[in-house]
Design a binder for these strands. Structure first.
Length: 106
DNA sequence: CTATAGGCCGACT
DNA sequence: TAGTCGGCCTATA
């Protein structure tokens, strides 16, 4: 069953909600978000949604990383994401976050 | 740590 | 219609 990929589809809504629910000082992975939304196999779509977020979004997209804690963004946005993460006491070493410490468990 | 292998699915060409 | 491409994932070696 295809997923509703429309801008305001259920999936997207759900994603926004969960991402917005990540507490400051914690991080989650794309796959984790996808799972929470009930679509375990749409991790990529989550990432795609993030990449398309408007610059003025209120969503904490920077709290979403890859499953291994690595920054998923290409070098371009990496710096900024790291800045935002560190701004909330999250430790980022070598472009990577220790999920065992900062990982978010819903 | 790297490398492979397989899967997954919407978007874009 | 068919490839190819992602802010991906998990498992294994």
């Amino acid at each position: 069953m295809p997923v509703d990929s429309s801008p305001n589809g259920e999936f997207a809504q759900s994603v926004y909600q969960w991402v917005g629910a990540i507490p400051a000082g914690n991080v989650a992975s794309y796959g984790q978000i996808a799972r929470l939304c009930g679509f375990p196999k749409h991790a990529r779509f989550v990432g795609r949604l993030m990449s398309k977020l408007p610059p003025d979004t209120k969503l904490p997209w920077w709290r979403v990383l890859r499953s291994d804690g690595h920054i998923a963004l290409p070098v371009s946005g990496e710096a900024e994401q790291v800045r935002r993460l560190q701004a909330e006491q999250i430790v980022v070493l070598a472009g990577r976050v220790n999920l065992r410490v900062f990982g978010w468990s819903a």
